[in-house]
Amino acid sequence: MLNLVNEQIGGLSENVKQKFFPCIFVTFTFLLFSNLQGMIPYSFTVTSHFLITLGLSFSIFIGITIVGFQRNGLHFLSFLLPAGVPLPLAPFLVLLELISYFFRTLSLGTRLFANMRPYFHVAFVA
């Protein structure tokens, strides 16, 4: 598991990567065991509730944003403007990237909820 985390987090030293390992490992094990719980007959998974998945994605989003600002300051916002963008296009691209950054949280929470919800697609077909 530690090797997987080291592969996914690039550009940081091994010492810094190991600081993020407990958070990633706890999130992974929570999702693993809560999703496996749904495989037990007459049971359900807690990730089939929209507020659980939304709360999990928002808390991770807020945590990553706080850690990003603590480690990088305002330079954390540099991901909103890729290198080589023409200056007249910059305001639109920054706005688009900012909207994308915020909606990623909603998207990830909704995807986990929809995948874990039994017979979710039947409600929309019928």
Results as ranks from 00 to 15, higher is better:
Glu14Phe: 02
Ser57Cys: 03
Leu87Arg: 11
Leu31Gly: 15
His75Gly: 06
Phe28Lys: 08
Tyr42Ile: 00
His121Tyr: 10
Gly10Pro: 00
Phe76Val: 04
Gly10Asp: 05
Glu7Ala: 13
Leu77Gln: 04
Leu93Asp: 05
Val5Leu: 10
Asn72Phe: 12
Phe44Gln: 08
Leu31Thr: 11
Leu93Met: 12
Val46Tyr: 05
Met1Leu: 05
Leu108Arg: 08
Pro86Asp: 06
Phe76His: 15
His75Ala: 13
Phe69Met: 10
Thr29Phe: 10
Met1Pro: 11
Ile62Lys: 06
Gly10Asn: 10
Leu77Phe: 14
Leu12Lys: 14
Thr45Pro: 07
Pro118Met: 01
Phe103Tyr: 14
Ala123Phe: 09
Ala123Tyr: 13
Leu96Met: 05
Leu106Thr: 11
Ser100Met: 04
Ala123Val: 11
Leu54Ile: 08
Ser100Gly: 11
Phe79Arg: 11
Leu54Glu: 13
His75Tyr: 06
Leu32His: 10
Thr45Met: 02
Gly10Ala: 09
Ala123Met: 07
Ile64Glu: 13
Lys19Pro: 01
Ala90Leu: 03
Pro88Leu: 02
Met116Asp: 10
Thr65Asp: 10
Glu97Leu: 00
Thr65Pro: 00
Val122Tyr: 05
Pro91Tyr: 02
Gly73Met: 07
Pro86Lys: 04
Val85Lys: 04
Ala83Gly: 08
Leu4Tyr: 07
His121Cys: 01
Ser78Gln: 13
Asn15Val: 09
Ile60Leu: 15
Thr27Tyr: 08
Ala114Gln: 13
Thr110Pro: 01
Leu74Trp: 12
Phe113Asn: 06
Phe79Asp: 09
Asn72Ile: 01
Leu2Glu: 11
